[in-house]
């Protein structure tokens, strides 16, 4: 058994960092577009936005619907750290660091449990 090498940790960190920054800029762009669309449509932020509907999201994007643009931006915001875990896990897998791969997978499993419980358990 060997210690984690400098190269594999550096690669995982660099990839993860770039992904986070990239996702953040995409999210900012989508949210900014959504806000412009809100202003143009005269929507008050306190009007009560629609719930997320994945089936109509992409139709809404084609029509530059403010809620669709904002929802996509918010989904990108939430996805950024999760994507970072996936990318770091993949970088560790490429280096056969199975301990870190297991940790990455466990984090993702916890998130999936959260999604499933929120969808199935009523409060």
């Amino acid at each position: 058994m060997t210690l984690p090498t400098r190269s594999r940790t550096v690669a995982a960190e660099r990839l993860s960092g770039r992904l986070l920054i990239g996702f953040t800029y995409v999210a900012v762009a989508l949210l900014a577009l959504g806000i412009v669309a809100m202003v143009m449509a005269g929507i008050s932020p306190l009007a009560g936005g629609p719930a997320l509907d994945l089936e109509t999201l992409f139709d809404g994007l084609e029509g530059l619907d403010p809620a669709a643009l904002l929802w996509l931006g918010l989904l990108v915001v939430i996805a950024a750290p999760i994507g970072r875990v996936v990318v770091a896990g993949a970088a560790y897998a490429a280096e056969a660091d199975w301990r870190m791969v297991t940790i990455s997978a466990a984090i993702l499993v916890i998130i999936v449990i959260g999604v499933v419980s929120a969808l199935t358990v009523t409060v």
Binding site: A27, V28, L31, A32, G34, I35, M38, I43, S44, P45, L46, A47, G48, G49, P50, L52, P66, A67, L70, W71, G73, L74, V77
Partner: peptide
């Protein structure tokens, strides 16, 4: 709420 979250987050 997307209408509140978007402007606040930006």
């Amino acid at each position: 709420d997307p209408y509140v979250a978007g402007p606040t987050a930006i």
